[in-house]
Structures are given as C-alpha cells and as structure tokens.
Amino acid sequence: MSEKILAKVGEKDVTSAIIDGFYGMLKEYTNSDVIIVGAGPSGLMAARELAKAEKKVLVIERNNYLGGGFWIGGFLMNKVTVRAPAQQLLEELGVPYEMYTEGLYVADGPHACSKLISAVCDAGAKFLNMTSFDDVVIRDGRVAGIVVNWTPVQALPRQITCVDPIALESKLVIDATGHDAFVAKKLEERGLIKTRGHGSMWVEESEDAVINHTGEVYQGLIVTGMAVSTVFGLPRMGPTFGGMLLSGKKAAEIALEKLKELE
C-alpha cells in the first residue's frame, strides 16, 4: 500500500477555487487607483513602485507571460544591459549584475525579469494576463479607466466575436504598451491628442529623452517606456533597459503626485 502524497480533493473543488479566486480578484479590481497597460520592464517597474506605496494597482497584459522584452537583450541573447544609474534598481530588486565597462552593467535576462515580476507581486499589485486593451473610458474630460477583452477573442473568426468587452475603472491609467502606445493611440483616434509616431534617427541620448518625457499626456493618462518614444516622436534606442526601468519609476512618481492632487 503506497501512501498518497497529495491531499485528496474533488475536481469541482479545483474549479471552484480558481473561479472564486479569480472572480473575487476581478470584482475587487473593477475599480483601482491605477491601471497599467503592458507588463514590460517600464510597466512592471511602475506597478512595483505604486503598489509599494500602498496603491491599488492592476496590470493588464495581452500575453500569457509577463515581462515583455525584458527576458532577452539584443539578437535574442538573454543578457540585459543597463546604464548607470539604473544598476541601482537592479541592486534594489536583488538582481546580480556585473560592470562591463564604466557606466554599463550586464545581468541575466531571466534573473532580472523574474525578480522584477516577483517584486511586483510581493508589493501587492494584481495582474490580468491574456487580457487585451480595447478602449479607454473617458469621463468629464479625463481618462477614467479602460475597456478590456480576453486576448483569444481577437483571434476568433468574425462571426463568433460577439464577446463584448468589459470596463474597468481607475483614477489613472499608465500606457506601458511599448512602441504601439495602444492607449495613447486610442485617444488619438478620438481626436483628443496627437501622437508623433517614432523612428527618428538614432542618437545616444534617446534613453534620457524617454525618461525626461515620461509624464501625463492627457488628463488621467501617463505614458512610460517605449510608448513615450511613439507619443513624442523621440529617437529610437538600442537594447538597453535602464531607460525603461527609470521611466517606469518616474511614471509611478508622477502618478503618486496626481493621486494626491485627486484626493
């Protein structure tokens, strides 16, 4: 007679646990302080800072996996580089890194990315992955939430895409959707802002420009990361991540200020 290793539970209990857990969370997060769209390095960094400041933070990610491009550096090589002073953020996250040359640091992509994700979870932010941004909620001339749908719905044949999206409300939305700048582009579709598109010539200081221009572009909408490049038409940049992390951190600082103003 072999002893059972795992506790005996019914299949319906497993299903119930998933449903109760998920829908309990979803219901609680129909209204958040901040919704962050995109779980790449800048979105995750913003989420961690805001959740650490005890804000109610929901992160939307269209993929199943979190982390965006932070798992790998250039040319599919899984080393990520940051320039000073962004190594301090690696330090804070407990990511081992080495100095490559003065001012340039290199870390393992999987280690850096997983540490960042876990820091966001530890800080208390919640995720909706496999969830795609669909539209913005605008109320009284400001962004007041987003409309989302299951990512797989986009892949369904047209005749069965009658799956309506749902709305989630928040005091602020952060667009961390990378080059696409999905949220900002939605505001542009409605004629509320004008984005500049990106792809300007390469210059070394483009990361600085992204950090400097991280901010509110419409009442209630803050842009961070590569979305900043798209909105402002800033020069393109190389595969280094310091700018993304610092932009996320700055987005969180601005969000905290705005939340204070809203109180």
Partner: peptide, 27 residues
C-alpha cells in the same frame, strides 16, 4: 523633429514646453 522622413511640426505637449524650460533636452 518627430520623424526622419517628415517635415511636420506639432503643437507641443505641456511636458515638452516644461522640459524646454528646464533644459531637459537630451535626445
């Protein structure tokens, strides 16, 4: 300049004007 192949000027965002004022013009 916003795009390498378009000579188009835009009404700036407030943060762009503020960054000009503060000299944050790297990149």
């Amino acid at each position: 300049i916003r795009s390498p192949d378009k000579r188009e000027f835009y009404d700036p965002f407030p943060i762009e004007i503020e960054n000009e004022r503060r000299g944050l013009i790297k990149g």
